[in-house]
Structures are given as structure tokens and as C-alpha cells.
Design a protein around this nucleic acid. Structure first.
Length: 659
DNA sequence: ATTTAGCCTG
DNA sequence: CAGGCTAAAT
């Protein structure tokens, strides 16, 4: 199956023009952008029917056309409508309603009528036909004049509603998609190990939508409640009955759920992510698919709005659709679509940040093999966190292989900013999915709680609106923002080609947690960066430089300690006090503004490094040209998960440390 | 062939 | 911190 984004691009013509009177009705049904993609079996049919209805509406007053069809088929009902039926036909009808031959005649007559009408229609389109009966044409025209005026009002409203509906439906689809993902993942998860994470996925996915849009019907507590379906059905149905009472839109949710091919069809085969590395694949695929698909859908719908209806009401409709109940700083950069786009962006930006706050629990001390004799007991609470590198766990080029037709950076669309915002929306939500149960560096919060107790949690603040963050979290998987812990997110809100000083700062802070981030980790933690080869290697290089500095300092101080007196060093256990010169230097380097509290974990890792250097030097191992390698090996195993707060764009700031 | 670590240099 | 380079891994 093709990737959604590709399919989107294959139907650009559907969304371009939106002429109420002249364009073929197909152009009005640009709405089902995503439906056919996600549910190729059901959606096309549904929308086919829908489209037909629209066609009737667009070209003629619906009742008129409908009755003409009826008349053609049954003969009888023809004269009851508003159709300008010539007098003789009415007379005919009175005469012999039961007469078969009369009926036959009438049918013939009606056929003639409809032919005439079509000709009139053609004339309106500019193809004049001399043979048309002048009377009929005139009558027809009168009706049409009236009809058109009505049409122009109703049509416009209807168009708006259509779009609204389409948006609604799209949301519905996506919710279902999320739901499906949850199901699939949940099953998979239970089969495999059971345990943590399922609800986290659900939360994330549910939140992604419930927070992002009108809360009234898609809101809190949606998952995994079964009521979600009914809820959505109800709301969509109501809107439908208001707009198209005769054609309720059946969302075919059950069918879709049974489809089984939604995600697996997106170039993901279940077996592919049923192993450790596969989880990451799956998360990546999920991100890619969802972000591109939804962003495009929203873009297009908005685009249609902007194109077809620039009058204030459209804004109102959309605003109504997506109540921006959050107080936000207005973002001056994002005004390219005043009203519509702005509200969308605001809404997306206002998404509560997914802050999983680490629990302040001490993890068991590991007095393991790295415990040097030099180090007193009191010294080390250093947890050995064997954290295999993601890169080691992933098959090479995994990303390319499972998303063959999806470019990592989809081409820009009419509303690039919005697109970006939506990507962020999904990046934020999905990147927090607890897919890694075994504590990979990419999955911070699960392990962060249990393994990284000493460092004060780093939740988020920023644009978050607390009430939203509090919404609907089961099991305390994610702890919202609570008052004490405040880390601001500052910095760029938009995607960047290159890396900014802000990113550098963030990278340095990240170094406190991970000395050897994989490139996929980096991509996860720099969602506001447009990654390409250059940027990726630059980031890698940064960390390489950080390590270099780190190891140089370690070696320097180890040598110094060895020089100054091994005995003293042994007595003091080579502790790295926060008052020490070494600490000061490290803090200066990685946390220049000193607005972030250096995690204890980093201090512990530094101690290990210092010790290793010290003992290596003492034992003369440093004569070996590659004596450092063994140390590097040790240190690279000590990476800890980066807090979730780093997943957000911009620079994390620990306001605790503000002095 | 590509990616990445590490070293050296400026 | 970036650029160039090599080596190793993939």
C-alpha cells in the first residue's frame, strides 16, 4: 500500500477549485482526503455516494432532480414538485391517472421534458441550442434565477458544512486509527511480555487528538472507552442530520476496525516490529505516517477554506470547530492565514506538553565491577544502566526500509507552518510512546522514574495550560505539570534548516544524560530541526566534541590526582564534589548559564570516568596507545535516558536554578 | 558505500 | 567548535 502522503499528492486536482456553480461536483469532495487512504475499502464507496449527493446539489436543486429521476422511472410523481411542468401535462394527469397508455404517454412526455431541461442547462453553460423550446427555457430560467440566489446562500453554507464534516470525518478516521494502533500494539504487547506501556500509548494517542481539537465530543477519557465510537457517531450524525438529513454519513467504524490492514498496510508488517528494534521502527513509522497524513489533511481542508470562503463566517466556523480555549501568546510569525490558520496553529501549539515526570525514587545502588577500591562506600550510588545503543539494536537503514515511499521530509504544502505544527503535534505525542520496555535511551520516562531518581524532574511549563495536561491520565503514567517543577521551553517554534545556538545549548544539556546518543535519538530530541545528513553529522560531531572535552578533563584531573598523591586520592575516593574544580569546569562547559541543575547521574558518571582514568594511569596502562578505549567502552554504557522534556523543541530551562 | 568514533588541528 | 582525516563497523 502506498503511503498516505503519496496518495495525497496523487489527488491534487480535487482540492484546487471550489466553484459553487460551474465546477464539477467532484471538486467539492476534496474532503475524503484521508479516508480512502486509511480505509480504501469502505471510504471510497461512502464518499462516492456522498459525492453523488453533492453533484445533485451542485447542479440542480436537489428535489427537482430527484423527482425528475423518479418521474422518469415511475411516471406518476412528476408533476408534484416545483418543476415547471407545462400545463398540458397537468391536464393530462387529471384526465387519466389510472390509464396505462396515458401513463406511457406521460412518461414519454417527461422524457422530452427532461431532454429540454438538459438542453436549457446546456444553454446556461454556454452551448446554445436553437431547437430548444423558448417557453420552457424561459420558465426554466426563471426558476433557476431564483434557485441560484438561494443556492448561493445555501450553497455557501453547505460548502462550509461540508468542509466541517470532512474535517470531522477525518478526525474520526484518525481517532480510529489511533485506536487501532492501540489495539494492535496492546495485543502485541500483552502477548509478548505483558506489563507496562499500553495505556501510555493510548494516552498519548488519545491525548494527541482530544487535546488538539474540540473537547466537546472528542474530549477527555476517550480511550479506551468503547463509547468513543458512539460518541463520535453521535456527533457526526447530528451534524449530518442538520446538513444532509437524507444522507447520514456512516463512518463504518467497525469495518475499519476489522480491516486489520491500516497500519500493517502502511509498509509495516507486524513481524517487523515484534522485536526490540522493531518497536523503534514502529514508533518511527507511526510518527511519519501520522504526521504527514494528518498535516496534509488539515492543510488541505484549511486551504479549501481559505480559498473558497474568505469571509468572516468561515473563520467562525472553524473557530467553533476548534475552540481555542487556551490562552496563548500570539505568534507573530504564524499569521499567514489570518484567522483560520492562526487559530489552527494556536490550537496546535497549545497542546499540553507531554511531561512524564520522573519519580523521586532512589534506584538500587549497584556496587558493581566499577567500584574501585579507591572509592569509599559512601561514594557511589551509580546505577549501572546498561543501555545498549539504539543504533546497535536497529537494523541498518531501518528507516528507509519500512517507509519506502515516504520521504522523511515531505515536500512543503500550502500551509507549511501548519504542517510543521502538526508534525510537532505528533512528534510530541508519539515520541513519548512507551515502546521500549527495556529502558533504551530513547524511552526516557519509563526508566527515568526508576533509574534516575536523584535528578530533579524536569517538567515543562511554557505554553502549557495546566487543565489540559491534567486531563485523563490513567495510572499516573504521565504526571502533569505540578507547581514546583518548572522548566521553561524557550526557543524556536518553527522548523529550522540548521542548528541554532539554542540547539547547541540543548545538546550540551543532553550530554548530562547521554554521551553517546544515536542519530535516531537525536532526531527524537530535536523535533524542531529539519534533519538532513549535514545536520545529523553536525549534531553527532557536537557530541563527539563534548566527549572529547569531557575525556580530556577527566584525564587531566586523573593525572593531577595521580601526581598529587595517590594516597590522598584514594582517601578521598576520587569523589567529584560539586564544589570541585572539575565539576565547575564541566558545568561551565555544558551548562554555561548555570540555569540547569547538573544531574547527579552525570556526576556519578564523571566519577567513574575519573576513576577509570586514574587507575589506568596508576597502573601504567596509559602506555598503551589505545588505553582509553576501554574507558570509553565503560562510559558509553552509562548513558541514561534523556528526560522527556528534551523532546520538545527549544531549550529546556530549569527554573529551579534561576538565581 | 555509508555512518560514526576518535584524533588532530586551527 | 568545525574541518579533515583514518579506522572500524555496518
Amino acid at each position: 500500500m502506498d503511503c498516505p502522503s503519496d496518495l495525497f499528492q496523487q489527488q491534487p486536482s480535487q482540492v484546487c477549485h471550489f466553484d459553487l456553480y460551474h465546477s464539477p461536483p467532484e471538486s467539492t469532495s476534496s474532503g475524503p482526503i484521508i479516508s480512502p487512504l486509511l480505509h480504501p475499502n469502505s471510504a471510497s464507496q461512502r464518499w462516492g455516494g456522498y459525492r453523488q449527493g453533492q453533484c445533485l446539489f451542485s447542479e440542480l436543486p436537489a428535489h427537482e432532480e430527484g423527482q425528475e429521476v423518479d418521474a422518469d422511472r415511475f411516471g406518476r410523481k412528476s408533476a408534484t414538485g416545483g418543476t415547471p411542468i407545462p400545463q398540458y401535462r397537468l391536464g393530462e394527469r387529471r384526465r387519466g391517472s389510472g390509464d396505462w397508455s396515458q401513463d406511457l404517454l406521460r412518461v414519454k412526455q417527461l422524457r422530452v421534458d427532461s431532454t429540454v431541461k438538459r438542453e436549457a442547462e446546456a444553454e446556461r453553460e454556454g452551448h446554445r441550442d436553437r431547437r430548444s423550446v423558448a417557453q420552457l427555457v424561459r420558465a426554466e430560467k426563471n426558476v433557476e434565477e431564483r434557485g441560484r440566489r438561494k443556492e448561493s446562500r445555501e450553497g455557501r453554507q453547505r460548502q462550509r458544512r461540508e468542509l466541517k464534516l470532512q474535517l470531522e470525518e477525518t478526525r474520526g478516521k484518525l481517532l480510529e486509527l489511533q485506536r487501532k494502533v492501540w489495539q494492535v500494539y496492546g495485543e502485541h504487547h500483552e502477548e509478548e511480555k505483558g506489563g507496562e506501556g499500553d495505556d501510555g500509548v493510548m494516552d498519548e494517542t488519545a491525548e494527541m487528538f482530544s487535546e488538539g481539537e474540540s473537547d466537546d465530543h472528542l474530549g477527555s477519557g476517550l480511550y479506551p472507552a468503547l463509547g468513543a465510537n458512539e460518541k463520535k457517531h453521535a456527533s457526526t450524525g447530528n451534524e449530518n442530520s442538520e446538513v444532509f438529513p437524507e444522507t447520514p454519513v456512516d463512518l463504518d467504524l467497525d469495518m475499519e476496525l476489522d480491516g486489520g490492514g491500516v497500519w500493517l498496510g502502511c509498509s509495516l508488517v507486524q513481524g517487523e516490529w515484534e522485536n526490540i528494534g522493531g518497536s523503534e521502527k514502529f514508533a518511527q513509522a507511526l510518527k511519519q505516517e501520522l504526521s504527514s497524513a494528518v498535516a496534509r489533511v488539515i492543510d488541505r481542508v484549511l486551504h479549501l477554506y481559505a480559498e473558497t470562503d474568505q469571509t468572516p463566517p468561515s473563520t467562525a466556523v472553524l473557530a467553533q470547530e476548534i475552540p481555542s480555549s487556551r490562552s496563548l501568546e500570539t505568534n507573530p510569525d504564524k499569521k499567514q492565514r489570518p484567522g483560520v490558520a492562526a487559530s489552527m496553529i494556536e490550537q496546535a501549539e497549545a497542546l499540553p506538553l507531554v511531561a512524564k515526570r520522573p519519580q523521586e525514587k532512589r534506584n538500587p545502588l549497584i556496587q558493581g565491577r566499577h567500584k574501585n577500591l579507591l572509592i569509599p562506600q559512601a561514594n557511589s550510588s551509580l546505577p549501572l544502566l546498561p543501555q545498549p545503543h539504539l543504533s546497535a539494536l536497529l537494523p541498518p537503514r531501518n528507516k528507509d526500509s519500512f517507509l519506502p515511499s515516504c520521504p522523511p521530509n515531505p515536500p512543503p504544502l500550502p500551509l507549511p507552518l501548519l504542517h510543521y505544527t502538526m508534525q510537532h503535534l505528533f512528534t510530541r505525542s508519539l515520541s513519548s510512546m512507551p515502546l521500549h520496555k527495556d529502558g533504551l535511551p530513547n524511552e526516557p520516562f519509563m526508566d527515568f522514574r526508576s533509574h534516575n531518581p536523584s535528578f530533579p524532574p524536569l517538567p515543562l511549563l511554557g505554553q502549557i495550560n495546566p487543565p489540559l495536561a491534567d486531563r485523563g491520565r490513567d495510572e499516573g503514567m504521565r504526571v502533569g505539570i505540578d507547581g514546583g517543577d518548572t522548566a521553561l521551553y524557550l526557543g524556536p517554534g518553527a522548523s529550522q534548516e540548521g542548528l541554532s545556538p539554542c540547539h547547541l545549548k540543548k545538546a550540551k544539556l543532553m550530554f548530562f544524560y547521554t554521551r553517546y546518543p544515536s542519530s535516531s535519538t537525536l532526531k527524537t530530541y530535536f523535533p524542531d530541526v529539519k534533519f538532513n545528513r549535514c545536520v545529523t553529522s553536525q549534531l553527532i560531531k557536537w557530541f563527539s566534541n563534548f566527549r572529547e572535552f569531557f575525556y580530556i578533563q577527566m584525564e587531566r584531573f586523573a593525572r593531577q590526582a595521580a601526581r598529587e598523591g595517590p594516597v590522598t586520592a584514594r582517601e578521598r575516593g576520587l569523589r567529584l564534589s560539586r564544589n570541585s574544580e572539575l565539576f565547575r569546569i564541566l558545568n561551565m562547559h555544558y551548562n554555561k548559564s548555570n540555569d540547569y541543575q547538573v544531574p547527579d547521574r552525570f556526576v556519578e558518571v564523571s566519577e567513574v570516568a575519573l576513576r577509570e582514568f586514574f587507575t589506568a594511569i596508576q597502573s601504567g596502562r596509559d602506555a598503551d596507545p589505545c588505553w582509553k578505549k576501554s574507558i570509553y567502552k565503560i562510559i558509553c554504557k552509562l548513558d541514561s535516558p534523556v528526560p522527556d522534556s528534551f523532546r520538545l523543541p527549544g531549550c529546556p530551562m530549569d527554573t529551579h536554578r534561576m538565581v
